[in-house]
Design a protein around this nucleic acid. Structure first.
Length: 210
DNA sequence: CGATAGCAAACTTTCACCGC
DNA sequence: GCGGTGAAAGTTTGCTATCG
């Protein structure tokens, strides 16, 4: 019987290993996060492989999640996010959006542009709230959409005000892959860009025109 | 081949007890 | 009252066999 070989399972599933938590809860949440990220439903074997869990373990945890609506099982017995996950996400998004609404309205009103609220999630920014511009020509970003931090304005804003150590770690993980011909792929150039964003941010904070 | 169940072992949690 | 320790109970897990 060996369980020591499951130590890297969280990294395989894309999450961080829990520090001193309940192992089964950590594993269950790994599965939840895996299914939430997957564009297609996954079978028990795929879930087990991605998380580093034994098939039996993955199956038991999936059954527990299914019994409470966190996952649903398709006709072909593959698993996908369930209604509970959907409700929780919707509730969470609504709480954040409600709290941010006055600030977004003010930003949209004063700038005449679409105001977006985004949160940092790993090497990506996730749109969690939005007040659209009234102008006919406007940018379009869907709430819930994930975008890379290094190739989007919202991502740069989120990263610009982090500490240097955090930025270095983030760049190491991101790798700055090119998405378009104009994507910044050089870390030094990206840091310069972040400095510009910071200067602009401080200027706006002082009430100066951009 | 993938899903499921049984079993034994390992692990976690709870609780009582003790010393400070 | 608080923290540390050990035993018991409960839970979780991997291996393996079986089923569809």
């Amino acid at each position: 019987m060996s369980r020591a070989n499951e130590g890297t399972s969280a990294e395989l599933a894309g999450g961080e290993p829990a520090a001193g938590g309940v192992q089964s809860v950590d594993r269950t949440l790994q599965i939840v996060e895996l299914l939430a990220r997957s564009p297609t439903p996954l079978g028990v074997v795929a879930v087990a492989e991605a998380t580093g869990l034994a098939q039996a373990t993955a199956h038991r945890l999936l059954q527990a999640l299914a019994s409470r609506g966190w996952v649903r099982q398709d006709a072909d017995r593959r698993y996908a996010p369930g209604i509970t996950m959907f409700r929780l996400g919707e509730t969470s998004q609504r709480h954040v959006a409600t709290a941010a609404q006055p600030f977004l309205l003010e930003a949209a009103s004063s700038s005449g542009e679409t105001a977006n609220l985004a949160m940092l999630e790993g090497t990506h920014a996730v749109y969690v709230g939005q007040v659209p511009s009234t102008q006919r020509l406007r940018t379009f970003a869907e709430v819930g959409h994930r975008v890379p931090i290094h190739s989007t304005a919202v991502g740069k804003v989120l990263v610009a005000f982090l500490g240097q150590a955090e930025i270095t770690a983030l760049l190491a993980r991101s790798g700055l892959p090119a998405r378009t011909a104009t994507t910044i792929t050089d870390p030094d150039r990206f840091r310069t860009e972040l400095a510009s964003v910071r200067r602009l941010g401080y200027a706006l904070d002082r009430g100066e025109e951009a």
